[in-house]
């Protein structure tokens, strides 16, 4: 049984203050209002008040923390008088502990999903081991939210250390992991939630579960080549511009490329975001490109999320946050693609 606390807003702010003594605490940034119906990202908590967290996910996904743009893997020198010239040195790693407050369950689920292919990646794991996630369940969803259709839920707790639900002005905090417990222990100021509050939380969770359907299992059961050769891909590709807006905003798009950069006589080997929407992504050194056509690239993005990934790891590699739907310049809607895929015989 998880420990469940009931807090007033002031108590929660006290927690944040206590946490920021030992770690960097990030909280939602209301930003400049460029994105509709959502806050723009996170900022370091300045020790004042917890900003209002608007419905829906932040515009920039949690990926901006887990996959820094760029990540320095190694450094090297190209100075001719340096005895260690061209030797790769391990880049300095971020040693700070981070607490992320106010992320949505979909973003936390994305960390869990990305952790599957990155289970042996030292950079990802290092960062994950130093990050505590304090999520806010969604009492209100956006029209572009569809987490229930892809295995998530507005009350999903995957990878969350503490899940907070705001019920009638009070914050009900469910402590879900040892890391979460470590934060709460000694932070003080909060009593256990009342039975009534726990009952209300259970009611909300059960209500949300009802909507859940199982697209993932259905797609896994379908034959790969039937989906691959489906007729609708051409019409999706007709509209697509092949920009990277969807992939770069997506919390579960984790592809990267590696390059060496040199400035003066200092160099670094960096890992930075790449997108399967770009022709260069799959271009061979010979000039041949196995995904040379736009349609092939569009198909790959959706097939990877909805078929290849679940076939290999189980869950769909989509958390239903709706960022790609909202920000796609040409309104390509992954929900439509999902529906089309499910309709393939």
């Amino acid at each position: 049984m998880n420990k469940i606390y009931g807090l007033e807003r002031a108590d929660l702010e006290k927690w944040l203050s206590r946490w920021s003594e030992k770690s960097t605490v990030y909280c939602p940034d209301e930003g400049d209002g460029r994105g509709p119906a959502s806050f723009s990202g996170w900022k370091v908590w300045a020790g004042d008040v917890l900003p209002e967290i608007k419905p829906g996910p932040a515009k920039c996904s949690i990926k901006t923390f887990y996959f820094p743009q760029p990540e320095s893997l190694h450094t090297f020198s190209t100075a001719s008088d340096d005895p260690d010239a061209f030797l790769l040195m391990e880049a300095e790693r971020d040693r700070s502990a981070n607490v992320l407050v106010g992320l949505r369950p979909c973003d936390a689920r994305a960390v869990y999903l990305n952790g599957l292919p990155y289970s042996k990646d030292p950079y990802f794991q290092h960062r994950d081991s130093r990050t505590t996630l304090v999520g806010f369940s969604c009492l209100e969803q956006c029209s572009t939210c569809f987490c229930q259709e892809v295995g998530g839920s507005p009350f999903d707790t995957h990878r969350l250390d503490i899940a907070i639900t705001e019920i009638k002005g009070r914050f009900i905090a469910e402590v879900l992991s040892e890391r979460g417990e470590a934060l709460v222990d000694g932070a003080g100021g909060a009593g256990p939630a009342s039975d009534k509050e726990i009952a209300e939380l259970d009611r909300l969770k059960n209500e949300a579960k009802v909507l859940k359907s199982d697209s993932g299992e259905n797609l896994k059961a379908k034959e790969l080549m039937a989906l691959y050769n489906a007729g609708f891909w051409d019409s999706v590709a007709d509209s697509c511009l092949n920009c990277g807006a969807c992939t770069f905003l997506c919390p579960t798009c984790y592809c990267f490329d590696i390059q060496d950069e040199v400035v003066g006589n200092k160099g670094r080997r960096i890992r930075y975001w790449d997108s399967c929407m770009f022709p260069l992504y799959s271009q061979h050194a010979s000039g041949h490109n196995p995904r040379g056509m736009k349609m092939q690239r569009v198909r790959n993005r959706f097939m990877h999320k909805l078929k290849y990934f679940p076939d290999r790891f189980g869950p769909l590699s989509c958390v239903g946050c709706g960022r790609c739907i909202r920000e796609c310049p040409v309104n390509i809607d992954i929900r439509e693609v999902l529906k089309d895929l499910l309709g393939v015989e």
Binding site: C60, Q69, L241, C243, G244, A245, F248, L249
Partner: peptide, 10 residues
């Protein structure tokens, strides 16, 4: 800027 190149591709 997230360098998605939407401005370029459109």
């Amino acid at each position: 800027c997230i360098r998605c190149y939407a401005c370029r591709n459109v």
